[in-house]
Nucleic acid binder design. Sequence first.
DNA 1: CATGGATGTGGCAGATTGTCGCACTGTTTC
DNA 2: GAAACAGTGCGACAATCTGCCACATCCATG
Lengths: 183, 183
Amino acid sequence: MNTNDSSVKFLIVDDDETFTRVLNKAIQRRGYETAVASSAEQALHLLESFTPDLATLDLKMDGASGITLVPRLKALNPNIKILILTGYASISTAVEAIKLGASDYLAKPADTDQILAKLNVTEPDPGIEIADKPMSVGRLEWEHIQKVLIEHDGNISATARALGMHRRTLQRKLQKRPVREEH
Amino acid sequence: MNTNDSSVKFLIVDDDETFTRVLNKAIQRRGYETAVASSAEQALHLLESFTPDLATLDLKMDGASGITLVPRLKALNPNIKILILTGYASISTAVEAIKLGASDYLAKPADTDQILAKLNVTEPDPGIEIADKPMSVGRLEWEHIQKVLIEHDGNISATARALGMHRRTLQRKLQKRPVREEH
DNA sequence: CATGGATGTGGCAGATTGTCGCACTGTTTC
DNA sequence: GAAACAGTGCGACAATCTGCCACATCCATG
């Protein structure tokens, strides 16, 4: 069915329509064969006839998280490179994702070049640098909340209780985007 | 040299003296054999006569980063569990650490129980299974602020800048209670 | 189907934060 | 010494945020 057996297949899973449209075009322009899904469920469907070599997954979508696709994708193609891409990035979810087998993790907003750089085997990371500034209190709070949230399997009520925080307040905090730490 | 060949060896590498002292005691109390180094170089020395089964490494220290020890430790003992622990946490270093083979990654401040919980997962210990509540966000914030304050020699203005927080707000926070945890 | 837990929202009074402004105090520099 | 500076403490006010109460769904258990 493909015009070229050696074409590299790229899967995009994200519920932000604008984002996927732009990214999809940019990636096709670079010669990849793409497939787009706006939910984990939809992606599973696609996988019946599409075996990607590269993939970007969104974490926070309606329905299942993109992270649930990682084992599936790895099973389908052990050499796949998976990039987790999310607007609600946190250290906790990043660690989870990498442990599950994702290749890398990037916080939105990220441009196409950054995304491809993370996925391209081309060159290994040129030595990461350690931040010279400590986290802002806002960021620290976000990270802590994410950690506790995971410990409670995403149960918001339980997390709020554990944190001694009102559930309503926690909900509101979670809806906001994390504080972006400039580098 | 060991009284017991089966004793579990725990390596702590961190340049925060107070932190290592407290953690060291807590860990020894639980029956582990410990070794402490305050730099990556010092740790390398230790490794000539000490093969750890568990380790916590600080990222930011004078000299080499604790992350450079990860491959070394893995080579020495492929089954080692390594926890990266740092006050300068970031997503990129977390991803890097896990990719290199670290078992987990925690941002300071973290209490001893959390640290041990992260490293103990494999040990089915039904006795102390009860996970006490995580730090409240208020307490976490307080500890973080205190730490950064000390790093800036008590300079409130500099601390506020480093934290990306308004000086007036920091002032008010400092005037208030040290936030005590209810149990 | 009743009951209880979890979640999404809306609304509101009270607490907290972001900003300005200003006075005061050491330090450093001509 | 006087001017220039950075840090500190504090009052005031508007913009936000938080704690709380109230519902309305869902969903699993019994």
